[in-house]
Design a protein around this nucleic acid. Structure first.
Length: 153
DNA sequence: GCCAACGTTGGC
DNA sequence: GCCAACGTTGGC
């Protein structure tokens, strides 16, 4: 089982939005970056645990945990001309883009802010800190443990 | 809202 | 295949 960090802009889709879904489950669609796509297609597996990170807000932070309930499969929003995520280069024969399904697990009582993460030397190698814009990132077991400890768990 | 970082596109 | 132009991300 592996650990991940998924970014989302809460104005578009937040952890509470996930919590409020039927079955607390939702497609993680709309990822349109090849490196992130490769993780979704090849590496993210059912049962993996995910830190949910809220970006593009005054205090960006890891706010909760989700679990992967379905591994990578084609992101059908890329095939839908009515979708914001439509990609005319994709087709059902060559879907290009992939998504996974995630289920809400919990909201951290104490979110772990980007500022706190940047302030911890043990987390200095995280793509988040290295200013990568990558929206799907691997998290090591050690980083996972440290972040949850910082959240008071 | 600014802008740096960085990914993508397209002319050559 | 280089690289300038352009678009997007996301912290601040």
């Amino acid at each position: 089982m592996a650990y991940w960090l998924f970014k989302t802009e809460p104005s578009a889709f937040s952890l509470d939005d996930l919590k409020n879904r039927p079955d607390m489950t939702e497609h993680w669609d709309g990822v349109r970056n090849y490196q992130a796509r490769n993780f979704l297609r090849d590496a993210v597996k059912t049962g993996d645990l995910v830190l949910i990170y809220h970006s593009n807000i005054p205090e960006p932070a890891v706010v909760g945990i989700a679990q992967v309930v379905r591994a990578g499969y084609p992101d059908f929003t890329a095939l839908d001309p009515g979708s914001d995520h439509f990609d005319p280069k994709s087709s059902s024969e060559n879907p290009i883009w992939y998504m996974v399904d995630v289920r809400y697990v919990e909201t951290l009582k104490r979110p772990v802010t980007l500022e706190q993460i940047k302030g911890n030397p043990l987390l200095a190698d995280m793509p988040l800190v290295r200013r990568s814009r990558l929206s799907i990132q691997p998290v090591t077991p050690e980083e996972w443990r440290i972040i949850l400890a910082m959240a008071g768990k």
